[in-house]
Design a protein around this nucleic acid. Structure first.
Lengths: 151, 151
DNA sequence: CCGTATCCATTCCGATACTG
DNA sequence: CAGTATCGGAATGGATACGG
């Protein structure tokens, strides 16, 4: 098995499994675009600026992984739309976390724009770490370990 | 410029910039391990199971990106520890988001373990989307857009 | 307009061998 | 133990050409 990639899909870790599905640039950027309302092949290509063959293969994989479903567009046959599934939409939490981190750490001058909910027009709040009983944790003080859940 | 990768580091999007730094499997898995307490080369290699040359190059990149700093270990010279910086620790939010998604969507039988804070022994709470005024949003109802911040 | 197919450069990855 | 060096194979990515 030289040169073949490790398969994380069966790993015994939720993070590893997530990454096996969405752990590359393009997939996450596509999903980001979709969360903003894009549905068509050409929209993705234009907004993200990646090659068409890559977009094609990523979309195929994401459909297989049930992040998107394909629906027909009334406007014309042989035109379809890529619509996020429930699982796909749930990735908004991951997106917001990535946005937040990038905003804090990748922009020397502070950013004057952020993520909002379009329907209400309201900005999205920062996400913070909390323990199950509602106490905030500063990431600096956290050591994150895996633990059995209590019944 | 055939075959060369697009550079996302200067993109006008916080998510894209984040991904330019941590947008690959191994980096995120290394950081996950570090959040759990790992600091040494061999620990990472053993826990994650990747080739040494890859680990070496990833650690180098992550040090350059100021996710880790290198500190000496008293135990022996020429042994050093990879210690997470503040920026690095802040990635715990991203990790938790990825864990949550993977737990919900990548495990057919529900998982009987989760992420906890080691010091207090308490489980970490789920993260939810909220608007700035504290109203919860179901991902299903969200359309995420970029918006100017108000002063 | 929506993709698929092909070509080729670059990067990624794993195995191994090697140095201190 | 902590890496570096090198090698071949695989996957990724961009450009372009093509078909519906």
């Amino acid at each position: 098995m030289r040169g073949s990639k490790t398969d994380l899909a069966q790993a015994d870790c939720a993070i590893a499994r997530s990454l096996s599905i969405i752990g590359d640039w393009w997939s996450l950027l596509i999903i980001r675009d979709a969360l903003g309302g894009s549905q068509r092949f050409s929209e993705f290509q234009k907004n993200i600026g990646l090659a068409k063959n890559i977009l094609s293969s990523r979309l195929r994989k994401l459909v297989q992984s049930e992040i998107f479903t394909i629906e027909d567009d009334h406007s014309s046959p042989s035109v379809h739309r890529y619509v996020l599934t429930g699982r796909g939409k749930q990735l908004a939490v991951v997106m917001l976390a990535l946005w937040q981190w990038g905003e804090d750490n990748c922009f020397p001058g502070k950013l004057d724009y952020g993520l909002a909910d379009e329907a209400s027009g309201k900005m999205l709040a920062r996400m913070e770490l909390e323990t199950a009983d509602g106490r905030r944790i500063d990431p600096h003080d956290l050591r994150m370990v895996v633990k059995m859940k209590r019944k």
